[in-house]
Amino acid sequence: MTSFRTVAVCVAVAILALSAGYATHLLVGESPRSGVSHAADMDALWKTELADTNGQRMTVNHWRGSILVVNFWATWCAPCREEMPAFVLLQRDLAGKGVQFVGIAADQGEKVKAFATELQINYPLLVGGMDVIDLSARLGNEISALPFTIVVDRAGRIVHRQLGILKPDKLRAVIAAIS
């Protein structure tokens, strides 16, 4: 009986652990081992020119050389809205270390502006149409879902990709590794 009890408890613990692992797998994201992304993909990012929430045209290349956190999002995406308050805090805390957040929204300008005001977003938000989703796909967003975030080092290499919410602790660790 004791052996059955031991086996049952081990099986239960193993299944729970595996399930928890599965549940977090997709949210953990991917840090490419080489740290090198396809040059063509990054060219597409650097050349991207979109209007910000004030209607001013900006090119992503403007922030090249920073540790760049590029977050693809939309106001119609609940998990996108959920993770952004943490980005505001991180932008405030890490600005002195050369970290720059940039949000790229697949959305309408008025909706993005209203949301930015509501959350007091302290980093640039660029607004595009569905072509923004295509851009994220060229950067590794294989199923074109949101939120999708990449972390780019000072040399312009993608060091982390994240589909789903990027937790602050994880992002801090990724940034610390390249600071």
């Binding site: 059955f4 049952a8 729970l16 399930s19 599965y22 879902a145």
Partner: peptide
């Protein structure tokens, strides 16, 4: 109690249909 725990763990695992596989595309 152990049997219940094992059954609960199996049910928990089955309740995560998305988590154990790659995400589907929209189609």
């Amino acid at each position: 109690r152990e049997r219940n725990l094992a059954a609960a763990a199996v049910l928990f695992a089955l309740a995560l249909p998305v988590a154990g596989q790659d995400l589907l595309d929209a189609s």
